[in-house]
């Protein structure tokens, strides 16, 4: 999933260099956790990833969220292309029990398998049923469902997985435990940090750590008052764990 998000951000920011082997691959990358405070643009980025995957000519996109989106984020160029929107299938599990049921019975749903599975507002489902065992099973089932979709997509099929989790300004120990547990299942993480900015626009710093030895990349994403999203590349760090491990964790909440 990390690679789908990278394509969203790279395509949106003019002049950002692609790294070797990146172009023309529709590889989804490892499961990704999208982390940010309330209102930091997690849903908008999820939706941008949904549009990106919907335009890649593979299967449909399954978007799980507790409630319908209030408004469609304008996003970048591809947004609101009706052909793409049609490929995004929304489902609204209204409780943790319903979400579990949906994932456990994903193999009973007929039709083409999704090429991307998205879940918004994981924190709401976890809050309802806060046991660590429960969280681990939910995370593992999300991975298992995406793996099953990949299997259905056939050889070379790869269903991405991207889950948004709201982080608190002041995390308590229970939250830290939850996050550590989820991070085991989601090797790639993307942190959103809103920056103070005037004139009605909304700017955030997006930091993508694709997991493993992949390069850490940061972008600025700006939402104009009308909702239009613009992206610019901030920096890329080569994926050398010996040189940047210390600094890479320092900036995170």
């Amino acid at each position: 999933m990390a690679e789908t998000l990278r394509r969203v951000l790279s395509a949106g920011s003019a002049g950002s260099a692609a790294w070797p082997g990146e172009e023309n691959t529709a590889e989804a990358g490892p499961p990704l956790l999208l982390l940010g405070a309330p209102g930091s643009g997690k849903t908008a980025l999820l939706f941008a990833a949904a549009l990106e995957a919907a335009g890649e000519g593979r299967g449909p996109v399954l978007f799980l969220t507790r409630r319908p989106l209030q408004s469609l984020p304008c996003g970048t160029g591809a947004a609101r292309d009706p052909m793409r929107l049609q490929k995004i299938r929304f489902q609204y599990p209204s409780s943790t029990r319903e979400l579990f049921h949906l994932l456990c019975s994903a193999h009973e749903t007929p039709g083409p398998a999704p090429s991307l599975l998205l879940l918004d507002g994981l924190e709401e489902y976890l809050a309802e049923d806060p046991g660590a065992e429960e969280s681990a099973y939910l995370a593992a089932l999300l991975l298992d469902t995406a793996a099953y979709f990949s299997h259905r997509l056939g050889p070379g099929g790869d269903c991405g997985l991207m889950v948004a989790l709201q982080t608190q300004e002041v995390a308590d120990s229970g939250d830290a435990l939850h996050l550590a547990l989820l991070q085991r299942y989601f090797p790639a993480q993307c942190w959103l940090q809103p920056e103070a900015s005037g004139s009605g626009e909304h700017r955030l710093r997006v930091c993508l750590e694709p997991g493993g030895l992949g390069p850490r990349t940061e972008w600025w994403v700006t939402f104009q008052p009308g909702g239009k999203m613009t992206i610019s590349l901030l920096q890329t760090q080569a994926g050398d764990p010996s040189s940047d491990k210390g600094s890479s964790s320092g900036g995170h909440p």
Binding site: A132, E133, A136, L143, D144, A147, Y148, Y185
Partner: peptide
């Protein structure tokens, strides 16, 4: 035990591995 990722529903997995 899930076939696709590292998960077992036993208490030892929850406690010794995850926690």
């Amino acid at each position: 035990c899930l076939a696709s990722c590292h998960y077992c529903s036993c208490p030892a997995f929850a406690f010794l591995v995850l926690r």
